[in-house]
């Protein structure tokens, strides 16, 4: 009995240490930025800031290009997400429910977006865009952002559609519902979490994209990550931290708003193509 209590105690200590390591490793860097963003003076070797201040927030938010970059980034991310949904969700449905020639071949071709190194891909795309006059255009930016989103937006909803039980659709059809009605009333609502998660991924991927935008959107399209690169290079640490918090805010809000949809099963289903 004594042994059991001791073992349990030891186990609890180990588990607690695990949680500490986990939190320090994964959340430490983010927490550090958050503290840095509201610090006034924070010199080595102090573990916490010597004084707190919001002066850098004022500075960052008073920069015109910063505010413009925020609205531009959100506009681009919204357009990219809507376009990706329109183009990819029907394809996802087809992959899940319709047997057609070369379907496996088409499905796996989306893996190419992740197999070729992004930097190399963007350079080649830039050459192509140059020929078609898409450099420094909104359409060009949206297309280059879609490179990153095509796979998520096709694979995750495809897996979601696949997990809808066909028996349910059939029984709806048996009581006289037409195919479109079955889709809207049964299939779509049940696949909704997968589509939602894929859309969040898409939105955030677009918000986060820097290298492609830098190559194709120069000089007019300065999105948030591009401003971030120049802030890291040109301004003191605190400015970068403030901007990091601003840039991470949409992520936090989206995740909290959609937390009931984001689950390991929905997401990982998308990477296991059948």
């Amino acid at each position: 009995m004594k042994w059991y209590v001791q073992a349990l105690g030891k186990r609890k200590v180990v588990e607690f240490l695990l949680l500490i390591v986990f939190v320090v490793f994964f959340l430490g860097p983010l927490l550090n930025l958050l503290i840095l963003a509201v610090s006034g003076k924070w010199q080595y070797p102090a573990a916490l800031p010597q004084s707190w201040s919001l002066q850098w927030w004022q500075f960052v938010l008073s920069q015109d290009d910063v505010l413009q970059s925020i609205s531009l980034s959100f506009l681009i991310a919204t357009v990219v997400t809507v376009c990706s949904i329109i183009v990819c969700v029907p394809a996802a449905y087809a992959f899940a429910r319709i047997s057609f020639p070369l379907s496996k071949w088409f499905l796996f071709s989306f893996l190419l977006t992740h197999a070729f190194p992004k930097m190399g891909l963007y350079v080649s795309i830039a050459v192509l865009f140059y020929k078609f006059g898409l450099m420094n255009t909104f359409v060009g930016i949206v297309l280059i952002h879609m490179v990153n989103t095509l796979m998520y937006m096709t694979w995750i909803p495809a897996s979601a559609f696949r997990s809808v039980h066909q028996a349910q659709e059939e029984s709806a059809r048996d009581v006289g519902a037409g195919p479109l009605r079955v889709f809207w009333k049964i299939t779509f609502p049940m696949a909704f979490p997968g589509i939602m998660v894929a859309s969040i991924f898409t939105f955030l991927a677009s918000l986060d994209e820097a290298q492609g935008t830098l190559l194709v959107g120069i000089p007019d399209f300065k999105t948030m990550p591009i401003i971030m690169y120049s802030i890291i290079a040109d301004y003191p640490n605190t400015t970068g931290a403030v901007f990091s918090v601003i840039l991470t805010l949409p992520t936090v809000i989206l995740l909290v708003a959609a937390r009931k949809f984001v689950s390991a099963d929905v997401l990982s289903g998308g990477f296991q193509v059948k």
């Binding site: 394809a91 319709i98 071709s109 190419l112 795309i125 192509l128 095509l150």
Partner: peptide, 21 residues
Amino acid sequence: LGLALVIPSFLILFFVVIVPI
């Protein structure tokens, strides 16, 4: 029908990924 649903996304893939590769 299946092909018709897949073609739009594949065309984008073709233009921004396959041709550049």
